[in-house]
Computed example of a mutant assay.
Amino acid sequence: MLRIERALVDKIIAHARADHPDEACGIVAGPAGSDRPTRFIAMTNAERSPTYHNFDSREWLQVDREMDDNDEEMIVHYHSHTATAAYPSRTDLAYLRSPLADPRVHRLLVSTRDPDEAEVRSYLLVDGEIVEEEVEIVESYG
């Protein structure tokens, strides 16, 4: 289960709406060894595409170094789907099954296909299979 603060989800949705009609992408980092996302980091979609996303490599290197310096790690990798449901695409599934994907990272998808309502869902890789997980949105972790 992904437990995440409402303020973080609101920032993810705002980023997705701002980048629409292109996919938005980013991460939410948290203390290393925890499962508590705390720091929102909007990334640049280097592809500038409505159907695909990829982190800008220079930006990712900088963010990765910042996380290392702050003893943080990626807890959530998010991206948006602009015209389809918040369900992994074939490209998403192929990446999630690749050796590059960290199975501990929550893969949060937000669909911006409806201008009035955002659909938010999260997935994990479990024993090589993509499994939807519950998303618990809380006001604070307190």
Rank of each mutant, 00 (worst) to 15 (best):
M1E: 15
L2Y: 11
L2C: 11
R3S: 12
A7G: 08
V9F: 02
D10N: 15
D10M: 09
A14G: 10
A16Y: 00
A16C: 15
A18T: 08
A18M: 05
P21A: 07
P21V: 08
V28S: 04
A29D: 01
P37K: 09
R39S: 03
A42N: 07
A42V: 09
M43P: 01
T44F: 01
R48M: 13
P50H: 11
P50E: 11
T51G: 02
F55S: 01
D56P: 10
S57H: 12
R58T: 13
R58F: 10
W60N: 02
W60E: 04
R65F: 06
D69C: 05
N70R: 15
D71F: 10
E73M: 11
M74S: 05
I75K: 05
V76K: 00
H77V: 03
H79S: 06
A85P: 05
A86I: 05
P88S: 04
S89G: 08
L93T: 13
S98Y: 11
L100G: 06
A101S: 13
P103C: 05
H106Y: 05
R107W: 07
L109T: 02
V110Y: 04
S111T: 11
S111Q: 09
R113P: 05
R113Y: 12
R113T: 03
P115E: 10
P115D: 13
D116Y: 08
E117M: 12
V120N: 04
S122G: 14
Y123W: 13
E129R: 13
I130N: 02
E133W: 00
E134R: 14
E139R: 03
S140T: 14
S140D: 14
S140N: 14
